[in-house]
Design a protein around this nucleic acid. Structure first.
Lengths: 182, 182
DNA sequence: TAAAAATGTCTCATGTGTGTGACATTTGTC
DNA sequence: GACAAATGTCACACACATGAGACATTTTTA
C-alpha cells in the first residue's frame, strides 16, 4: 500500500536526518508531496505512523525471540539478535524516544512497548538471581547496555569498518561480558 | 570572551537539538542574535567553531589521560573517564561526526582528532599483544565499543535512572569486560 | 573626557518548508 | 467503456529562520 511505502521510506530518511523536508521523503517513496499529505495530515501524523510501525516490528521481534527458548541466557541472546535485525528501524526508534517522545504524553501506543520492555525487565533479575550475570549492576544500566549495543552494531554495519560476518558474534560476546556473563 | 560564551552555549543547545534556531542559541548565551552574527559569519561558521572547540577539549583530555600512566590498562581506563568527563561536549561531537562531518572534506581541523585517535589505536594492539584483552575482536569494533560506552554513560546520567555515583564504575566494568579484559 | 569598539534594537529582503485548494491525469473496478 | 478512487501538477498563502543594513546605546580604551 502507498501509506506503508511512505512510512517505510520516511523511517529510512528520517533516520538519517530527523528534520528532512517532506519533499525528500515523498521523493524517496516515489510519490508526490501532495499525495503524502493526503495520507498523513501533517508531519506529526507521519511521525506518529512511523512510531506505531516501528513499535509493531520491534514488539513482534522481541516476543518471538523471548519465546524461542526457556533458557534466559538464550532468550537474551536471541533478543539481542532480534534488535540488531530490526536495524535501521530500531535506531530511529531510539532517536524518537530521546528527542521527540519527550513532548508527547506517555500515551496509548506505548502499551506494546511497555509489554516488550516488561518481558525484558523480568529476564534480567532472573539472570541475576541465578548468579549468571553481575548483580552489582542495576537493571536500568543493563537495559542501556542492551540498547546501546544494538546501536553500536548498527553503526558498525554502516561504517563498513567491521566485517559484517563478525558483527553479531562480536555484539553478543561484548554485551554478554559487559553484564558480567561468564 | 563573548565568542567563547556563544560557543559554549551553542554546544549545549545544539546538543539538544542540532537544528535549533540561532535565536535560541543567542538567547541562551545572553546576547542578541545580531551580535552572534557579528562573531560568526553564518550558522556553518558557528558550528565549525564549536567543532574546533570540542576537538581541543577532547584532545587535551585524551592526551592527559594517556600520559597519566605507562600501564596501558590504566591508560585506557583514564581515557574512558576523560571521555565521560567531556560529557555533553562529546555527545555533540558524535552527532556532528555522523551527520554533519560527512559533508566536509576530511580537512585540516581533523588533525588533532587523528592524533588522539592514533594514540588510542596504538593502545589496543598493545593490549592485544600482551594478551590482556581479546585479540579476536577487531580494533575498529573496540573503538566503537569505547565511543558508545561514553554515549551510554551520558544517556544514563541524563535519564536519571542510574545513580550518578555508580556510573563511572559501571562504565569501566562493562567496557573492560566487553573487550575481554580480565 | 573623548574616541573607538562592541553590543542592542529595529527593519527589511530572501529563501524555504509547509499545508491546502483547484484541476488534470492516471489507475483500478464494475 | 464508464465511473470512481487515487495520484500528479500547478498555484497560493503562511510561518519562520536567516543574514544584513542603519542607527542608538553601552562599554572599553587611550
Amino acid at each position: 500500500m502507498t501509506s506503508q511505502k511512505i512510512i517505510d521510506n520516511a523511517i529510512a530518511v528520517l533516520n538519517e536526518d530527523f528534520y528532512a523536508p517532506l519533499d525528500i521523503i515523498a521523493g524517496q517513496a516515489g510519490v508526490n508531496r501532495r499525495t503524502l499529505h493526503r495520507h498523513f495530515k501533517d508531519r506529526a501524523a507521519l511521525i506518529d505512523a512511523c512510531w506505531a510501525d516501528m513499535m509493531q516490528t520491534w514488539h513482534r521481534a522481541m516476543l518471538a525471540a523471548y519465546h524461542s527458548s526457556t533458557d534466559p541466557v538464550v532468550q537474551l541472546e536471541q533478543m539481542l539478535y532480534a534488535g540488531i535485525d530490526c536495524g535501521v528501524k530500531y535506531a530511529f526508534l531510539n532517536t524518537l524516544q530521546t528527542k521527540y517522545l519527550n513532548e508527547k504524553a506517555g500515551a496509548v501506543e506505548n502499551e506494546a512497548y511497555e509489554q516488550a520492555k516488561n518481558n525484558w525487565f523480568s529476564l534480567v533479575p532472573e539472570l541475576q538471581r541465578q548468579k549468571l550475570i553481575s548483580d552489582s549492576l542495576s537493571v536500568a544500566w543493563i537495559r542501556m547496555l542492551f540498547v546501546n549495543m544494538i546501536n553500536t552494531t548498527i553503526q558498525a554495519l554502516r561504517s563498513g569498518d567491521v566485517a559484517p560476518n563478525d558483527i553479531k558474534k562480536f555484539a553478543w560476546y561484548s554485551f554478554s561480558r559487559s553484564i558480567g556473563l561468564l
